[in-house]
């Protein structure tokens, strides 16, 4: 039936992908990670056959390094200011174990939950999860009630308090709406990595791994299969797309 056809198609795709990966390794090792995110035709929408996710290795994350934050601000046109009313899509959090005093540093952003509380509570449906698992705010429907900010367990969302100008063409942002990390959806749809991941790799830390959680050939799938990883606030059973190892 169609199932078997799908699986054949997927097999073929996986084969091509694996081939491409090998080619990527041999031809352009420095740019390999571009290939991990899979591009698609523009007229083709996001598909539920994919689920974008991220694995963050906190042991590799540099203490005091905030290149991911800077890259995010540059890519998405954020000011980089850190006042109480300024937007921060990604932030470095220092986590200290109260009993042992052990300190770790890790990036924290929208965890792109499979059961996102922000989507549940949004009265107009502006807060939404795309078919491929990316959680977004549809600013055309956001009325600025900020209930999603109340509901988010990760404090991932920011409210735009001031009128905006000189936005990035790919990243519309405006006063009165709520916003958060989009996994750099404008890049992912082109087959690129989120800006933070790229910056982390460029720095040589390679603490962030981005990819398709449903693709058995993807690096993130394999990494998750071979290492122990946790969700932040796993007790809430939100099935986050961002997972951490080393904490």
């Amino acid at each position: 039936m169609s199932d078997s056809m799908n699986s054949k198609l997927e097999d073929r795709r996986d084969f091509l992908k694996a081939g491409g990966l090998v080619a990527g390794v041999t031809l352009a090792p420095g740019l390999l990670f571009y290939g991990v995110a899979q591009s698609r035709a523009p007229e083709e929408g996001a598909s539920s056959r994919q689920r974008w996710g991220m694995l963050i290795d906190t042991t590799k994350c540099g203490d005091g390094c905030s290149d991911c934050v800077t890259a995010c601000n540059t890519e998405n046109g954020l000011s980089g200011k850190t006042g109480p009313q300024d937007s921060q899509w990604i932030r470095k959090v220092d986590v200290k174990d109260l009993r042992t005093g052990y300190v770790q540093s890790l990036p924290m952003m929208c965890q792109h939950c499979d059961n996102p509380p922000c989507v549940d509570v949004c009265p107009t449906g502006a807060s939404m999860k795309r078919a491929d698992g990316i959680v977004l705010v549809d600013r055309h429907a956001c009325i600025g009630c900020r209930y999603c900010m109340m509901a988010c367990p990760y404090k991932a969302r920011s409210f735009v308090h001031e009128p905006m100008h000189d936005q990035k063409p790919d990243v519309p942002r405006g006063k009165g709406c709520v916003e958060s990390c989009t996994f750099c959806v404008q890049r992912v749809d082109k087959g690129e990595q989120p800006a933070c991941v790229e910056a982390c790799d460029a720095k040589g830390h390679k603490a962030m791994l981005f990819g398709d959680l449903k693709d058995p050939q993807s690096a993130i799938f394999k990494a998750l299969k071979s290492t122990d990883s946790v969700e932040v606030r796993a007790d809430l059973a939100l099935d986050t797309g961002v997972r951490y190892q080393g904490i």
């Binding site: 795709r13 091509l16 992908k17 491409g20 990966l21 080619a23 990527g24 352009a28 740019l31 390999l32 571009y34 290939g35 995110a37 899979q38 591009s39 698609r40 035709a41 083709e44 598909s47 056959r49 994919q50 082109k190 087959g191 690129e192």
Partner: peptide, 8 residues
């Protein structure tokens, strides 16, 4: 993209 692979 470096690897011109399509999802569909």
């Amino acid at each position: 993209p470096v690897l011109p692979l399509h999802g569909g």
